[in-house]
Amino acid sequence: MKEEWCVALFHSTSLALRGEKLCREEKISVKLIPVPRRLSSDCGVCLRFPCVDEDRLRAVFAAGALEFDDIARL
């Protein structure tokens, strides 16, 4: 089955980097990629992750009090 990818969007690169760190500590496979144009006109990065991990990722962000803008499907 083809893996489905989601992205978490943040206000800033610093927050995205914190998100990356929190996820790696919890062994969620993530990668910072440029924000897709259809999701935002911003020039920053977002955090790509397998959609199956969305609940875990939300829990990690909540536990780390990490603010994020949105989670979207790629």
Binding site: T13, S14, I33, P34, C43
Partner: peptide, 20 residues
């Protein structure tokens, strides 16, 4: 750092974040 989305830009952003 934190401008482009390519991997070196991300690495540069990480250097700054880790120093913070």
């Amino acid at each position: 750092p934190g401008r482009s989305g390519h991997r070196l830009s991300v690495d540069a952003g990480r250097v700054i974040y880790e120093t913070r």
